[in-house]
């Protein structure tokens, strides 16, 4: 194992984060605060409780997930896209590092950053809404698992993309709709029966449901299913990355 190699990549990526700390942290925290003001306070005060949870509190796990997904994907995809774009990837390709080590470095850094951000958003939320966490260990577990999985997904997007447009198209056209329709702002039980069925094809439903369960002990879908689905997606992403590195697809000519 090339530990120094992993450390070099991880540090490089974290340095990039800290260099752009203001954008990386301020923007999501600000947006989330706006959500809490608008949905939590202004609209939420007119909404009834869902599953006997106040609406303002109900949306917290979903909002954190929303940010976690977006941040994980954009951090990781940008992290690997940049060296491809700038040409500095030559060094990574000529270095004695395996794809596992590359993943540890890039995905590790992207996940670290989004977990930090997730926790920051949770703390910000506390300023607006009182909430409790029923299963803190599971909460952290979901946070980590989701951050890693979607950082991996972002890494794949970054490998695949050959333009800045492509880099943004998947997050915008796929991930944002899926998170909004994934029950961040409502319980899927509130949907008409047909849509309740259709929505189960959306992987984000399982993430948000499981995460919300760790807060309030209530879930839209079975918690075990949530965990299994997240792991399943993680394994799919891992297999894909392994294949990419094995064949050199899109990175080695």
């Amino acid at each position: 194992m090339n530990i120094y190699g992993i450390r070099a990549i991880y540090r490089f990526e974290m340095a990039r984060t800290f260099r752009t700390l203001a954008q990386s942290v301020a923007a999501p925290v600000l947006t989330t605060s706006l959500y809490f003001i608008v949905f939590g306070k202004a609209i939420g005060s007119r909404m009834g409780d869902i599953d006997s949870i106040a609406y303002g509190a109900f949306i917290i796990p979903g909002l954190v997930m929303l940010n976690l997904l977006n941040e994980s994907i954009s951090n990781a995809s940008f992290g690997i896209y940049m060296p491809k774009w700038a040409g500095t990837i030559y060094e990574l390709l000529s270095a004695p590092v395996s794809w596992v080590e590359v993943l540890f470095g890039y995905v590790g850094a992207a996940a670290t950053k989004s977990v930090i951000l997730g926790l920051l958003i949770l703390s910000t939320a506390r300023l607006f809404v009182p909430y409790e966490i029923a299963h803190p260990v599971w909460m952290i577990g979901f946070l980590l698992l989701t951050a890693v999985t979607f950082s991996l997904f972002g890494f794949i997007i970054g490998l695949w993309a050959d333009s800045f447009q492509k880099l943004q198209v998947v997050p915008m056209l796929v991930v944002t709709p899926l998170t909004f329709l994934g029950g961040a702002f409502y319980s899927i039980n509130m949907l008409p029966p047909l849509w309740q069925k259709i929505t189960l094809f959306n992987p984000v439903v399982y993430l948000i449901s499981g995460f919300r369960w760790s807060f309030y002990g209530v879930a839209d879908v079975n918690v075990a299913t949530s965990i299994a689905m997240t792991f399943g997606f993680l394994i799919i992403c891992l297999t894909f990355v392994w294949w990419v590195f094995k064949t050199g697809y899109k990175i080695r000519s």
């Binding site: 090339n2 190699g5 060094e91 000529s94 590092v97």
Partner: peptide
């Protein structure tokens, strides 16, 4: 390897980039 094209990390410092290279190569 010193590549033909000038591919560098624009925002890194000289020291950081060579320390990175050393680490990357284990």
């Amino acid at each position: 390897l010193v590549p033909q094209e000038l591919h560098t990390d624009a925002f890194e410092s000289v020291w950081a980039t060579i320390a990175f290279s050393r680490g990357l190569f284990g």
